[in-house]
Amino acid sequence: TTRAEMEARGWDQLDILIVTGDAYVDHPAFGPILIARFLEGRGYRVGVVAQPRWDSPADIARMGAPRLYVGIAAGNLDSMLNKLTAQKKVRGEDQYSPGGKNDLRPNRASLVYANLCRQAFPGTPLVLGGIEASLRRIAHYDYWSDTVRRSVILDAKVDVLVFGMGERPAWEIAQRLDAGEPIGSIHDVRGTAVVKKNRKAWEPLLEDQTKYAADGKLVVLPSYEEVKADKEAFAKMSRMFQYETNPHNGRPLLQVHGDEAVFYNSPALPLSEADMDGLYDLPFVRAPHPSYDERIPAFETVKHSIVTMRGCFGGCTFCSITEHEGRIIQSRSKDSVLREVRALSRMGDFRGTLTDVGGPTANMYKMTCKDPKIESSCRRLSCVH
C-alpha cells in the first residue's frame, strides 16, 4: 500500500498496518493478507507493507502511524526455514518473493520487523503473529543455531503475540483498542500471549495452579532455564503444551524466563462454517500487487487452488499443523467452495484444472467428532488411532 493509494480511497490515516515478509499477493493463501482482508471487511482501514527494507524504518513509516496497531508477520513460512535448507545452505529461490529473489527478507524476520516498527512508531501497539511467531511462542529448540531459544515475544519486545489462526484475536484487539482500552490491559484475549514483566506480576498467578484437567486453571510449564539445561524437562514441557491445544478445554499456560514470564491464554475458538464462508467470500483480487514486474513463484503454485478446510486431528509427532491451525476441522460449505470455483473459472489464465482442493493436511473436509460434547472435553493428542 502506498500513500497515493490511501489518498485515492480518501484515507488520511490507517487504522491498522500489516507488515509482512512475503510479497503482497491479494490471495487467501497468503496469511497476512487474509488477516488484512478480514479486518478490512469489518470496517477498518488496513494498509500493507510487504518486504520492507531492514536497514531503515523509512519503508514501514511511509504511510504514517496507524491509529490502532501494527500487525507484524514474518510471512507464510518461518523466515529461517524460508532462507536455509536442512543442510543450512542458502536456498536458490524464495518462493514468496518477486522473481524468487532470496535477499528480500531478513533472517528472524519477526524480530527485525518488530524492531523497525518500534523505531518508526514509538508508542504504537505492536502485535506479532504468523506462523513464525506461533511456533516459537514457548521456549523452543532452534535448529539453525542448535540452541534452545526464549519465547519470541521476549526477543521481539512486542505488546501481544497472536498464536494460531489469527482472525478472532486480531479483531478483538482492534475492537478493544478502538473502544479506548490501553494495550497494556488487553491480556485476556484467547489465542494470544503477553509478557508479565516482573515477579510481582506473575508470582501471584502461581497460587491458583491447576489440580486436574477440567478445572480450567493455570498450567505452569518448566521454565526456559530448566528446558535449556535438561532434555527431559524440554520433553515434559512439549508434552504439557500439546495437551492444551484443544480450544474447548485447553488451560492457560505460564512459562518463566528469568525474572519475566510469558502468559498464554487458551487457544482461540474455531471458526464456524458461516465464518469460514465469510472469510473466503471476501473480495480478493487473487493477483499480486500491480507494482510487481516479476512472477512470484508461490502465487503461481496456488492461484488455481482452493482452501476448503483448516486444522488437523492427526497429531503426528513430526508435524506442527496442530500447534498453529488446531486439531478441530473447520470447513467451508459446498456452496462457498462452488462460488470460488466459478470465480476461478473467470480468470483469464484458467484452463479448467484446479491444482489443489483441500487444506494443509490430508483431505479431512467435514470430518468432525461424532459428538460435540465429546470433542469439547477430549484431550487425546491424535484421533487417527
Rank of each mutant, 00 (worst) to 15 (best):
Y69Q: 00
D59W: 00
P52V: 07
R67S: 01
N82P: 06
L81W: 15
G92M: 10
K83H: 08
R91G: 04
Q95Y: 11
D94E: 12
S56E: 06
A73M: 07
N82Q: 11
G75P: 02
D78W: 01
Q87N: 14
T85P: 04
V90E: 11
A86D: 11
P52L: 09
L77G: 05
P52E: 10
K88V: 10
V90H: 03
D59N: 00
L84S: 05
S56L: 05
E93R: 13
G92V: 07
P57R: 05
R67N: 00
P66C: 14
M80L: 12
L84G: 02
T85W: 05
T85E: 08
D78Q: 06
V70E: 01
K88H: 10
L77P: 08
K88G: 02
P66A: 10
G71L: 05
E93I: 12
A58C: 08
T85A: 07
S97I: 07
A74M: 13
L81T: 15
A61R: 11
G92Q: 10
G64N: 04
N82G: 14
K83N: 01
Y96W: 13
K89E: 15
Y69D: 01
K89Q: 15
P57I: 03
G64M: 03
W54M: 03
D94I: 07
A73D: 11
L68I: 07
N76M: 14
L68F: 07
L81P: 04
A74W: 11
R62N: 04
I72L: 15
R91V: 03
I60Q: 03
D94R: 06
I72S: 06
L84F: 15
K89L: 14
L77E: 15
A86H: 11
K88A: 13
I72N: 05
N76L: 15
V90R: 10
G92W: 08
M63Q: 12
A73C: 13
A74Y: 12
Q95D: 13
R67L: 01
V70R: 00
D94N: 13
A61N: 08
G92T: 09
M80E: 07
P66K: 10
P57G: 03
A58R: 14
N82M: 08
G75I: 00
T85D: 10
Y96L: 11
D59M: 00
Y96H: 12
I60P: 03
R91Y: 02
A61L: 10
G75L: 03
R53K: 07
L68P: 10
R62P: 06
M80I: 03
A65I: 12
D55V: 09
S79H: 02
S56V: 03
Q87A: 13
K83W: 02
Q95W: 11
R91K: 13
I60K: 01
R91L: 05
D94T: 07
S56I: 04
N82Y: 01
W54G: 03
G75A: 04
I60F: 01
V70G: 00
S56N: 11
K83A: 03
D94F: 06
Y69K: 02
D55G: 14
